[in-house]
Design a protein around this nucleic acid. Structure first.
Lengths: 291, 291
DNA sequence: ATCCATTTGGAATGGACATTCCATGTTGAC
DNA sequence: GTCAACATGGAATGTCCATTCCAAATGGAT
């Protein structure tokens, strides 16, 4: 069909081949981000997959990676060639090299962080403080939660018709994420605490076939405690999450859990509570699915 | 020392073949050290090489490793079979797995948990899975965040008149918690994404003296991306938090951070993101306090 | 010194792999 | 609407690789 002058294609190919490929992973990463806009659909897909799952690229075969990334193996080759490599294998070398370096330096990095804490910027210290606190919180959480109690809590909530999620102020992000997840999981729930005023009307509709999950940390939002107590008095099961056994929520709950978030300079993140909330949410959905 | 009846060895061999191979690198290492005395010359050579150059084993081919270790490829295969593997490839998997897991130290714990997972209740498994995932997420977070970039992000947001917090759906709990904390810390901020409709009116009031912090995870809420882009176009600095370098937010942000939350059975908690959010929030407040 | 068991080297083999090629789809310009 | 340029899917291909096999070598026992 088309008449290609003998010199046309070979020249093009040669020029492309002459473009030297990135020499290390960081360089490759930069180039990919730089050019992602001008990449065709499938190559963009590969680019995203490569940066999001670098380990897979390092260890997998073209075929296995192709399946994970939902493309053809040939697309992987084309992708590599697009960035100046001879083939997919050449690109893969960079991902492997990265992994080698990563492993050798990881422990060092942690040690370095601790050593020159003084030299670092204030914000970096704060950042490190919060990640360390998060680690501790989660450790404490796994130690503090009794599996049997957790199981009972799941049973109670899985059996409920509608799950009322009660949380104010600092606990609100927890329940709002649970509400989001329950929505995705097709578990009926009602978030209480959104707009002041209508809360009590909402709760008035709760029946003993429903259940509630309340979250409250000190300083306790007394409103949550009152609402939980009302529900309990009307025969509605309440499960709660607090940061102290003295929480007013504890006494009116069928099951309650204590999460002590470690703090950094007096500020607490919600890392452990979030992990707990998700575990509870998914467990409930799973129990329902199994019937 | 021990008297081997002629019939013993053949039996032994058969039994060894049936013995399941070590399941992880540490187990393999122990077994090798244990039996290195009774190994024939070439196999000892391989054993020494394997423990001294684990990375080579992980990435090399049987041929290339054979050359480095001064043995025949077939010796490598025999070595692997000696330890109960079907072939060299099986053994290589352990060396690769080791590299993957080195990056996150909590993998070990997770595996232990998984091993006796059968005995535990479903919900307990889920719970353990989420705490392990949270640990991993936070490890990844500390490795992924560049202190200098974090510092710059803090500068940008601390200098802002009002901080606009943009987040929808799954990211909403993050920004709602930041809004709560900013309130306590007397930092002026405006939560965007509460009630649909008024968002754009709110954002219309933003001036270049303000700044925005946007959070979005895939599947991206396109609304957030559009809003962030609009702000950026009007000269308002945007800092963002996403789970992929391909997030539409990344390209319109002055600074952006990648948090890859590890998942349990496909569900992600927000543990690491929460730690990041709090670190950022407190850092900003601290920077302001110091003037 | 001879023999047997075991180990070792190296060629042969069969399978898996990256890569290439071509037909089909898609996009955008005129 | 048509065409050209480019992107894509999928089968074909040839290379490289792990593995197997067998002959030779080694080492110890008698």
């Amino acid at each position: 069909m088309t008449v290609l002058l003998p010199s046309d294609r070979p020249d093009m190919t040669e020029i492309v081949a002459k473009v030297s490929p990135p020499q290390d992973f960081d360089a490759l990463r930069s180039v990919i981000l730089e050019r992602k806009g001008e990449l065709p659909k499938r190559l963009t897909q590969v680019a995203a997959y490569a940066l999001d799952h670098p380990d897979e690229i390092a260890f997998g075969t073209a075929a296995s990676i192709a399946i994970s990334a939902n493309v053809q193996p040939s697309t992987l080759v084309r992708f590599a060639q697009h960035f100046g490599f001879e083939g997919f294998s050449g690109l893969q070398l960079l991902f492997r090299a990265r992994l080698r370096e990563r492993t050798s330096s990881y422990e060092d990095r942690l040690r370095t962080l601790e050593q020159d804490g003084q030299a670092l910027a204030e914000s970096t210290n704060i950042f490190n403080g919060f990640t360390a606190a998060a680690h501790r919180s989660i450790d404490t959480l796994s130690a503090a939660v009794d599996p049997a109690a957790f199981e009972r809590a799941v049973d109670i909530l899985a059996a409920a018709d509608t799950i009322y999620l009660i949380a104010k102020r600092r606990s609100y992000p927890i329940s709002s994420y649970m509400a989001y997840a329950f929505g995705k999981l097709k578990v009926r729930c009602q978030l209480v605490g959104t707009a002041a005023g209508i809360d009590d009307d909402l709760l008035a509709m709760a029946s003993p076939r429903d259940a509630a999950f309340a979250v409250s940390f000190s300083p306790y939002a007394s409103e949550s405690a009152v609402q939980a107590r009302n529900l309990a008095a009307r025969g509605i099961n309440v499960v709660s999450l607090t940061d102290s056994a003295f929480s007013p929520l504890a006494e009116c709950s069928k099951e309650w859990f204590e999460v002590v978030e470690a703090d950094h300079a007096g500020f607490r993140s919600l890392s452990a509570s979030m992990a707990f909330a998700m575990a509870l949410t998914v467990s409930i959905a799973e129990k329902r699915r199994r019937g």
